[in-house]
Design a protein around this nucleic acid. Structure first.
Length: 363
DNA sequence: AACTCGTGGCG
DNA sequence: TCGCCAAGAGT
């Protein structure tokens, strides 16, 4: 392939060095390495997308305790799934996992189609790399992965220029990953190449002194490890502003609304949000005409990857609300229900006690 | 092809 | 404190 840079090592030599290193210094005790069933590997791979191992572990344990089998996951409600996903982020992963479980029950007899890369990658939330990881880890059959760790390691080893998000660069990295992937010990190999990137060939401070490929690494020879992979060209973060209405009833319960099925915090429950104070007051006139507004709390900011969210809580209190429909509920912070909450909303609710205590009674 | 989607760790 | 970004995929 003209797409592929000239390999700096013979594939067999690369595999021997990597697996020897993995046997000594790799990770062998991760929770999803215990019983390598397709279902457990699948759930772990979804949670690990753009998320670090130490973050995932407690979520994975809780998830598997609640849904030990794919059938039980498929039988659960989306609210239950998102509840267990609360705080993990990228909630489309949870929604897609749930959707895919139901599809597997309907179309694949309840078993993940691990014999077909195409069928696997056709399921929601499973792309090319995740499909490869599931096959390699759970069946041991040859499959290629290309995650952030592999991209970083291979781009340094070959000094691949350009941001890996560019299709041209990504194709080169896929070709290299394909070249080095062995026929045997594929489960260990895929774990090993990820461990190398996670523990040695790290982004900030790579430990080239312990790396089995230091003598062959082009970036290392040039003393330019930090320059690879090239970083994404970034734009300034835009700022969005939202008002969150904190409406309590006499019992201290808080009104929540379910957000649209897609987009930011899709399917999660949140305080009702408004673009401005006028919209909020209009809503109150319709749904809660007797509501008593308190002085606004200090605004706070929440920084996401692509924008900064300025949140201004607007506390209010009311004795009753005329309509509490399907996408609206009273939520008791004292005995929280099993629904999905975005992290900032959860934190807001956790800090609610002072407001409940100091709220003046309607006169 | 470029943009969107969360949260937490790190230098 | 702050910008960068991590076991990517969907649109």
């Amino acid at each position: 392939m003209s797409e592929m840079p000239a390999p700096v090592l013979d594939a067999g030599e690369f595999q021997r060095r990597l697996l020897d290193w993995f046997d000594r210094d790799g990770r062998h005790d991760l929770p999803w390495q215990r019983e390598r069933t397709p279902y457990r590997v699948w759930v772990s791979e979804i949670m690990l997308q753009q998320t670090q191992v130490t973050t995932v572990i407690p979520y994975f344990e809780r998830f598997m305790a609640h849904f030990p089998t794919l059938a039980e996951l498929a039988a659960a409600s989306q609210d239950e799934v998102l509840h267990l996903w609360t705080g993990l982020g990228y909630y489309a992963r949870g929604r897609n996992l749930h959707k895919a479980a139901r599809r597997v029950m309907e179309e694949h007899g309840g078993e993940l189609p691990v014999n077909s890369l195409e069928a696997l990658a056709g399921l929601p939330g499973i792309g090319r790399s995740t499909a490869g990881a599931i096959i390699a880890q759970s069946t041991g059959r040859r499959a290629v992965i290309l995650d952030g760790n592999v991209k970083r390691s291979l781009s340094r080893l070959h000094a691949v220029e350009g941001w890996p998000g560019r299709p041209v660069v990504e194709r080169r990295l896929w070709a290299l990953a394909e070249h080095y992937t062995p026929e045997h010990r594929v489960a260990d190999y895929t774990q090993a190449i990820m461990d190398l990137g996670a523990t040695l060939c790290r982004r900030g401070t790579p430990e080239c002194g312990r790396c089995p490929f230091a003598d062959a690494c082009v970036a290392h020879a040039r003393g330019e490890q930090r320059r690879f992979p090239e970083s994404k060209p970034r734009k300034a973060l835009p700022t969005r502003t939202t008002l969150m209405l904190m409406l309590q009833d006499a019992g201290g319960r808080v009104l929540l609304e379910q957000r649209p099925a897609s987009g930011l915090w899709g399917g999660l429950w949140s305080l009702p949000q408004f673009d401005d104070l006028a919209a909020l007051r209009c809503w109150l006139d319709v749904h809660a005409p007797g509501a008593l507004l308190h002085p606004a709390w200090p605004a706070f900011s929440h920084v996401f990857s692509h924008f900064r969210l300025d949140i201004t809580p607007q506390p209010a209190r009311i004795d009753g609300l005329d309509s509490v429909g399907e996408a609206r509920c009273w939520y008791d912070p004292g005995s929280p229900g099993r629904i999905g909450l975005a992290a900032p909303v959860k934190a807001l609710l956790a800090s609610l006690a002072p407001f409940a205590l100091t709220a003046p009674e309607p006169s």
